[in-house]
Design a protein around this nucleic acid. Structure first.
Length: 885
RNA sequence: GGGCGCGUAGCUCAGCGGGAGAGCACUACGUUGACAUCGUAGGGGUCGCAUGUUCGAUCCAUGCCGCGCCCACCA
């Protein structure tokens, strides 16, 4: 016997182990069946599961389980990402706690430390994914820095270099002075901060007392100025073009040049040109043949190219000093308070990034982007929802070279070796590089390997094929590439999706996935982004502990619409947990009534109206859920199943069959039991992609008293009920009945003339509006009696109720469950409380029964209504009779 | 500045050419034999505003207002 509620904590671990041990998660290899593959967006190996992961993996798991049940060969490829910067930061922080540092340890020792850290904490997120129920093929788990994937990375780098697409260049990059590494444009987060705009007077050489005024938010960089630019057509400055300004503090003459970049509308119309510290200025400098003057160190302090007084000062310190000194010289024309966007590092959002002149490795992605663009234009890869296509297009069409080198230690070290004269040897291994160098120099030479590592996203870009064994020609690649769908959030469309497209097409000759489903973000219940600093983080593991994984998964899935962000309040999870309880208890009802599975049961053969109806409704629901899942409309799929279980199966079917199951007709009872059991099985299957644990548990438990199951629910075939009869007649009859019962609009209990009470049900004409549920016949009586306008009659036979529709009356059998004496007593009590209500009701209804002398037209009207109602009553009686016969 | 998304019941949202819905919250009643993690009933909305298309608009078009996000600029 099932307990009254489901205890997720007691079954989840057991079921998961059972699934995993059985090999049910393993990539399928059934011949002749289509394939379905998803690669997981690899989470940071040292991370832990946040609510966004929970959503992402719930959706993937729903698809994987769905397709597995549909008989496809499913591969859900799991793994983790080495997450260069994030992981290095974490480990450095740990080292700091032990009074150690990366630099002191040296590269080799440090890397050992990171690997150790990875071994220790790397299992966390993977364990947490298991708690969520993720049915990944763990036997194929990969890590972006494991041997195979590293080999793929090297191969790709070397190949792209040989094709001339990877090259070294010296230009401005976004520099993180704390980590002392370059980061890509995408890793920059522009944050609005309060700042100042200083208007600085630059004296004109040889013209005492004449100045050109420039406005800047970064006065310290003026020490690296190489020019002042004005717009060619800006008449205010025409006379100055060609003159020299004397750069204050540095006392260095710089030219005043004309360049279209200068915007007469902005600032003073004259702009200082600092090519080494501003992206636009870099271009201006290039146009005018002005060499950049780098005045910063890697740490973001001023270097030796500035006057003594400023050397070694941190950039912010230097700013204060420069402003103070300029002010003392009377060279500050004015200072404005402004709010402007300043580039910060996206991880901690605390470090101001610098445009910084360095030599880095770049990947020329333009040719790759063209093909990636074309693939989407041609529909070979499709974004869902479609509007993300434009986001992808816009970025791809304006793509910039990808800076792929990072000055970190944790990551794939770039396979480049330098000879004594700076000769470059790009090979997959050191020995190959050595051989190449030997060939080049004609002798053995000492080589130095480039110390930099690759951007983390470089290896992620290869994920769909590197995890399947590329560059080897593996059966997995053959079977599963291109993958079916990528499920991810919009925040990594550029970082990851676009780059996988480019690399996939380039190296595999085909797109990495057919569909890209972009899901929304999960916010807190107030619609705020979850963040540690705000303290509004909802930990999915806490939710799983308290409500079970199914409740969390269902809450996420049913909220996963196509447009707006998901606001996850805990009450949503509660609702879904309650839904699980409802399902559990519906199963309990079936169990108590011995509704057990019969293998030979054929739903097409049922004869009772109520059974025909539920069979047809089940088929419709299966079709709805299937269609919705195929289109990634998770909310609709989960919603359709929810609605069917609660509003159709529990509220109506179970209530309708109670009198049948309590009746004496063994044949109809048997059919009904079989149908109920069959329907419940279909429900479990429909819900399994969303609520794997509770459904699997019920699947097993419900078979305890029936024909044992051949296999686990997760391996059962997805129902295809498309060939079942539609049973239009039964459906329309049941719908009519449900509408009618729902339409009992106003019912009043009234002790009319004691002791002769009557139970009267007033249906509002033949039309219907809200809902009174026909639970059991007894429930009908109770509900009716409870409501505001029912009359209990002692003069009708016990066990039947008289329905009055309009003025027409129809007796309806109620079985033998009503104790009229008791009900009457209760009603009397209740009525005393609600006399006011009755009065109001009478007034509202203008109950003609109480009108002594009704006008002719009222009587006529009543007659019509009566005739109409009589017909309804007759039909109702017939319908209820047919339910159980 | 460019682009995208969203404004529907107190809250969170679904619906998107012909009856305005769900969950939560609220009110009243009810522990009955699957389920109080429940049931029954009830209150509550000029579907952001305006114009247009249409026999008919919450739904389509245009404009406006408000909110959010992305990209760019960032003197």
């Amino acid at each position: 016997m099932l307990d009254k509620i489901f205890h997720p904590g007691e079954v989840e671990a057991r079921l998961y182990a059972q699934w995993e041990d059985s090999g049910a998660f393993r990539a399928g290899s059934k011949t002749g069946m289509p394939s379905f593959a998803i690669v997981i967006p690899p989470p940071n190996v040292t991370g832990s599961l946040h609510i966004g992961h929970a959503l992402n993996n719930t959706l993937q798991d729903a698809l994987a389980r769905f397709e597995r049940m549909r008989g496809k060969n499913v591969l859900w490829q799991p793994g983790t990402d080495h997450a260069g910067i994030a992981t290095q930061l974490v480990v450095e922080r740990e080292l700091a706690k032990r009074q150690m540092s990366r630099v002191k340890m040296g590269r080799e020792k440090f890397l050992e430390e990171v690997w150790r850290w990875k071994e220790e904490s790397g299992g966390t997120i993977v364990r947490q994914l298991r708690r969520l129920g993720a049915s990944c093929d763990w036997s194929r788990e990969r890590f972006t820095m494991d041997e195979g994937l590293s080999r793929a990375v090297l191969k790709v780098f070397v190949a792209l270099h040989k094709e001339g697409l990877i090259y070294k260049d010296k230009r401005l990059v976004n520099w993180d002075p704390r980590l002392q590494t370059a980061v890509s444009d995408l890793e920059v987060e522009n944050i609005e901060v309060k700042g100042k705009l200083w208007h600085i007077k630059y004296p004109i050489s040889g013209e005492a007392g004449r100045f050109i005024i420039v406005a800047t938010t970064r006065p310290e960089t003026m020490l690296g100025d190489v020019a002042v630019a004005v717009h060619p057509s800006d008449e205010r400055y025409t006379s100055l073009v060609g003159s020299q300004a004397l750069l204050p503090l540095a006392n260095r003459p710089i030219p005043i040049i004309a360049d279209e970049y200068s915007d007469p509308e902005k600032g003073t119309g004259a702009v200082k040109i600092t090519p080494a510290h501003d992206f636009n200025d870099f271009d201006v400098g290039k146009r005018h043949g002005l060499a950049p003057l780098n005045i910063l160190t890697k740490e973001g302090a001023l270097n030796d190219l500035v006057p003594d007084a400023y050397r070694g000062l941190d950039r912010f310190e230097a700013r204060k000093r420069v402003v103070a000194d300029l002010d003392a010289l009377g060279l500050i024309e004015k200072t404005e308070d402004i709010v402007h966007a300043v580039p910060h590092d996206e991880k901690t959002k605390t470090v101001v990034l610098e445009p910084y002149l360095t030599e880095q490795w770049y990947l020329n992605v333009t040719p790759l982007a063209e093909k990636a663009l074309q693939a989407v234009e041609e529909g070979r890869t499709r974004f869902v929802p479609e509007h993300w296509t434009n986001v992808y297009y816009n970025w791809m069409r304006n793509i910039q070279p990808w800076c792929i080198s990072r000055q970190l230690w944790w990551g794939h070290q770039i396979p480049v070796w330098y000879g004594p004269d700076g000769g470059i040897f790009v090979e997959e291994t050191e020995s190959e590089a050595r051989a190449a160098a030997k060939k080049h120099y004609g002798r053995e030479v000492a080589l130095n390997r480039d110390p930099d590592v690759l951007d983390t996203w470089f290896s992620s870009a290869l994920w769909p094929f590197s995890t399947m064994g590329w560059p080897d020609k593996t059966p997995e690649l053959k079977r599963y590439y291109p993958t079916s769908v990528l499920v991810t959030g919009f925040d990594i469309i550029f970082f990851w999706v676009a780059r996988m497209m480019m690399m996939g097409i380039h190296f595999m000759g085909d797109v990495p996935f057919h569909d890209v489903f972009i899901h929304t973000r999960v916010l807190d219940e107030k619609g705020q982004k979850m963040s540690k600093t705000k303290g509004n983080v909802v930990d999915p593991l806490d939710i799983i502990d308290e409500y079970g994984a199914d409740a969390l998964r269902f809450a996420l899935a049913i909220a996963a619409g196509q447009g707006r962000d998901i606001r996850l309040g805990i009450n949503r999870v509660e609702t879904c947990r309650n839904f699980g309880t409802k399902l559990w208890n519906a199963s309990r009802f079936c169990e108590m009534n011995e509704c057990v599975r019969k293998r030979e049961f054929d739903p097409a053969t049922v004869e009772l109206t109520v059974n025909k109806w539920i069979v047809a409704e089940t088929a419709r629901t299966v079709s709805e859920v299937t269609t919705a899942l195929e289109a990634y409309r998770f909310n609709e799929a989960a919603g359709a199943a929810y609605h069917f279980v609660w509003d159709v199966f529990c509220d109506w079917y179970v209530e309708f069959i109670k009198p049948v199951l309590n009746g004496n007709d063994e044949a109809t009872k048997a059919e009904t039991r079989d149908t109920a059991a069959w329907t419940l099985d279909r429900i479990l299957q429909l819900l399994h992609p969303f609520m794997p644990f509770i459904t699997e548990e019920l699947w097993t438990r419900m078979a305890e008293h029936a024909v044992p199951r051949r296999s686990m629910l997760m391996l059962s075939p997805w129902p295809d009920l498309s060939t079942l009869p539609q049973h239009e007649e039964a459906r329309s009859e049941m719908n009519w009945l449900i509408d009618l019962i729902s339409g009992v609009r106003s019912v009043r209990a009234e002790m009319n003339v004691p002791p002769s009470a009557r139970l009267t049900l007033l249906l509002k004409g033949a039309s219907v509006e809200t809902s009174l549920r026909l639970a059991t016949h007894r429930d009908v009586a109770l509900s009716l009696a409870r409501l505001s306008s029912a009359r209990v009659t002692a003069d009708i036979p016990q066990g039947s109720a008289q329905f009055v529709i309009g003025e027409a009356a129809a007796a309806l059998p109620l079985g033998d469950v009503i104790d009229f004496a008791k009900e009457r007593a209760r009603l009397e009590k209740e009525l005393k409380k609600s006399e006011d209500e009755i009065a109001r009701f009478d007034a509202k209804l203008g109950n003609p029964g109480f009108v002594a002398k009704a006008p002719e037209e009222v009587i006529e009207e009543q007659k019509e209504k009566r005739a109409e109602a009589e017909a309804v009553a007759v039909r109702l009686r017939e319908a209820l009779k047919r339910l159980s016969a």
